[in-house]
């Protein structure tokens, strides 16, 4: 099957800065794909290369099997929801949404009807006559979304779409984006630095670091089987264990990751491994503990109901050996 978006050895250099370095990605049609990474990791550049705002320094891009390098943005059937929405301040909401239809010379009645439909999809019916300046951040976001989907593009790109929203609104928009994507069947590619967002929304996630793709996989894959220290560290809050520590338990010298919730706290008497509690924060249903085990710092998330430890206590630290995930790469 043809990929929706295919990047083959794509690099984008700005002078000496390698914003994208030999990136390979295959994104399937209809997929909800997340590009996750810290700021400066190249995920936004990757999005801009797909949109056509940036041309790759080298490599090959295909969108639904057609070569895309050298093709300007206005000839790509790909639309973008910008991080700060980029709504046109001189047009009202309806004309913002109908902008792409106006360019294609769809007649006024028809384009306003289609724009109303798109506004209804994002639950903003009746807001057409307002100006972007009169809307809240969440509403502007919906307008940007309606404007990007009114044409039913082949691929929808979302650049940190929920970044500027408060927590409650964000959670609601996550659900709405997912159901919207399911009902439209459009390939969604979204960029985020929020691992929780990437894991909860995406079918597959690509983790970026320093312009490179570190790992691509389903959220479960990435979370449970990180292939590098970076991914283990960045996705969620895995403990990253040095080779010496791993060797003492498994006999193999390799970096390993250990999920905080895999750690159990036992009475210190007779425990095989002991640690000292150096930090404790109450999270509601769980307690997050910072532990010092022979100079290696670990953190554990344990149920609040059974935990009575205090800072300075010595406790037993236990986990199933199979919870330890050895990582191939040293990086």
């Amino acid at each position: 099957m043809t990929s929706a978006v295919s990047l083959q050895q794509v690099s984008r250099h700005f002078g000496a800065v390698r914003a994208m370095d030999s990136v390979d990605l295959e994104i399937a049609p209809g997929e909800f794909f997340a590009m996750l990474g810290p700021s400066g990791s190249g995920k936004t550049t990757c999005l801009r290369v797909i949109a056509g705002f940036e041309q790759p320094t080298s490599g090959h891009i295909e969108i639904f099997g057609e070569t895309a390098e050298g093709v300007p943005p206005y000839r790509r059937n790909v639309n973008t929801v910008f991080q700060d929405y980029a709504l046109f301040p001189h047009l009202n909401v309806l004309d913002n949404v109908a902008y792409s239809l106006m360019l294609r010379k769809v007649d006024k009645v028809d384009r306003h009807r289609q724009a109303e439909d798109a506004l209804a999809l994002v639950k903003l019916s009746g807001y057409g006559t307002r100006r972007p300046g009169q809307l809240s951040g969440g509403q502007r976001q919906r307008v940007a979304l309606a404007r990007a989907i009114v044409n039913r593009p082949k691929v929808l790109l979302l650049d940190e779409p929920l970044g500027a929203l408060d927590l409650k609104l964000r959670e609601r928009m996550q659900d709405e984006l997912k159901s919207l994507q399911r009902s439209l069947g459009i390939t969604f590619i979204f960029v985020t630095h929020d691992q929780g967002e990437a894991l909860s929304m995406a079918d597959r996630v690509a983790v970026f670091s320093d312009g490179k793709v570190m790992q691509v996989g389903t959220p479960e894959d990435i979370y449970n089987h990180p292939n590098s220290r970076f991914v283990a560290d960045f996705v969620g809050s895995s403990n990253v264990l040095p080779p010496d520590f791993t060797a003492a338990i498994t006999g193999q010298r390799a970096w390993a990751s250990l999920r905080p919730e895999a750690i159990r706290i036992t009475p210190s008497d007779g425990a095989a491994m002991q640690g000292r509690v150096v930090a404790r924060s109450f999270m509601g249903s769980t307690v997050r503990l910072g532990l010092d085990v022979n100079g290696v710092s670990l953190h554990a998330v344990v149920p609040a109901s059974t935990n009575t430890t205090a800072i300075g206590d010595t406790v037993g630290v236990a986990f199933a050996p199979e919870a330890l995930h050895l990582m191939g790469r040293e990086a």
């Binding site: 300007p72 943005p73 910008f82 404007r147 044409n151």
Partner: peptide
């Protein structure tokens, strides 16, 4: 980004 957005929309 408004110029980008305009080009993006065709």
């Amino acid at each position: 980004n408004l110029i980008d957005a305009s080009g993006d929309l065709g």
